[in-house]
């Protein structure tokens, strides 16, 4: 089981990872990236089971990465949860239209992260 955590905040990546570690035995399975471009490189070189993806990041943002991936046959079915501060309904609709599987508004808590992630990992 490999989870890719993409966020430009190192502390946010750490919070997400540490929260998931308390729930799932995925200690060896985390890969981190700090922007969409780095994430794309990781995806090209690893088999990833789930990506947790921030929206607002430098170089390549999360929503543009989702659009790029959904246009490629090999990543059409990659499970993607967008984890972002963007709480407006029009943002959620935009992300779903782009192809995310689920959407989680920051701040992340143990409970809401668990509920979003479990359906992809159980």
């Amino acid at each position: 089981m490999k989870i890719l955590v993409v966020d430009d905040s190192r502390i946010m990546r750490s919070i997400v990872k540490n929260t998931l570690k308390t729930m799932y035995d995925v200690d060896e399975g985390f890969i981190e990236a700090s922007n969409g471009e780095e994430a794309f490189t990781v995806l090209e070189n690893n088999r990833i089971d789930l990506m947790l993806l921030d929206w607002n990041m430098p170089i390549l943002n999360g929503i543009d990465l989702v659009r790029k991936l959904r246009g490629m046959a090999e990543f059409k079915n990659l499970p993607i949860i967008m984890v972002t501060s963007e709480a407006a309904k029009y943002n959620v609709i935009e992300a779903v239209k782009a192809g995310v599987n689920d959407y989680l508004v920051k701040p992340v808590t143990e409970k809401n992260l668990y509920e979003k992630v479990k359906k992809f990992l159980d």
Binding site: I11, T84, S85, E86, A87, N91, K106
Partner: peptide, 14 residues
């Protein structure tokens, strides 16, 4: 604090 202001602004959009 960058993440805090990001969350405040993003959440306030709701």
């Amino acid at each position: 604090i960058g993440e805090v202001v990001n969350i405040i602004a993003g959440n306030a959009k709701k």
